[in-house]
Structure formats: C-alpha cells, structure tokens
C-alpha cells in the first residue's frame, strides 16, 4: 500500500475531476463562454499537472512514456471540458493541456521533497475546484 501512495492520490484526483465534469455538465446551459473558457483552461492544466507530477514521483525511470501520457491526458481533459461549450473553447483547453503536460514531468523530476509538495499541490487543487464549483453555481 505504501509503495503505491502517489498513484492512489492521482486516482482520487481524477475521480474528483470526473465528478466536477458531471457537475459542470448539468449546468452547462447556464455557463457563459468566458467562464467556459476559463474552466477548460484550468481543468486541462490541472489534469496534466497532477498526472505528470504524481506519475514521475512514482516511476522516476520512465520519463518519455510519462511525458506522452501526461500530454495526451491533459489534451483529452481540456478537449472534454471545452466540448461542453464550443469549438473554440475546445481548442483553447486542448492547447493549454498540451503545454502543461509537456512541462509537468520535468517539474516533478527536479523536486527533492515529494511529500511536502504533494500537500501544497493538493491544497491548491481543492481550492481551485471549490472556486470553480462556486462560480458555476452562481452563474
């Protein structure tokens, strides 16, 4: 159990993003295109960031494969969240996921204190999810 802790944290994060997708899908008629663009950019970047960083913490010897997985995951997530609204929103989310996915494994490979960074990253991810759900609720 202890060896796979980062993959478990990644799994919890992905489940939370899936729940947020269902939540945004219910309110998608009410959300304007500007908020939709911000949702697509933020969620594509967050999925790519968490995938890249936690996978490279867990398996530090597979840099190339993790870069490909993080890039494809970020692009897919940005395109899914953007496709709720508009084609241009989909393009914006796709490209932001691409950039973050290229960067994230490199950022994870430099860090020397994974536990502390994991705590800070989780706090920021929950903060962003809270702000986004409040913004969708109030629109």
């Amino acid at each position: 159990m202890r060896e796979l802790s980062f993959v478990l944290i990644l799994y919890i994060n992905l489940v939370m993003f899936a729940l947020l997708y269902v939540y945004v899908h219910r309110y998608r008629k009410l959300v304007g295109f500007h908020l939709g663009m911000n949702i697509a950019m933020a969620l594509g970047g967050l999925v790519a960031l968490s995938t890249g960083i936690f996978l490279i913490f867990q398996y530090p010897f597979h840099f190339t494969a993790i870069t490909m997985v993080a890039t494809l995951g970020g692009m897919g997530a940005g395109a899914l969240f953007g496709a709720l609204f508009d084609y241009q929103t989909m393009l914006t989310g796709l490209v932001n996921g691409l950039m973050m996915g290229m960067m994230a494994p490199m950022l994870g490979a430099i860090l020397t204190d994974p536990i502390f960074f994991t705590v800070v990253l989780e706090v920021f991810i929950f903060l962003i999810i809270g702000v986004l759900s409040a913004a969708v609720k109030r629109s």
Binding site: Q88, L91, V95, L98, M99, M102
Partner: peptide, 17 residues
C-alpha cells in the same frame, strides 16, 4: 474578434513550442 484571438493563441503556442 474572439475567433481571431483563439486561433492566434492556439496556433502560436503549439507552433513555437
């Protein structure tokens, strides 16, 4: 206007990277 900004940012970011 909006379409021009979206297309510019998408194509420029990917191409330059």
């Amino acid at each position: 206007d909006r379409y021009a900004t979206t297309i510019t940012s998408t194509a420029t970011l990917c191409t330059t990277l």
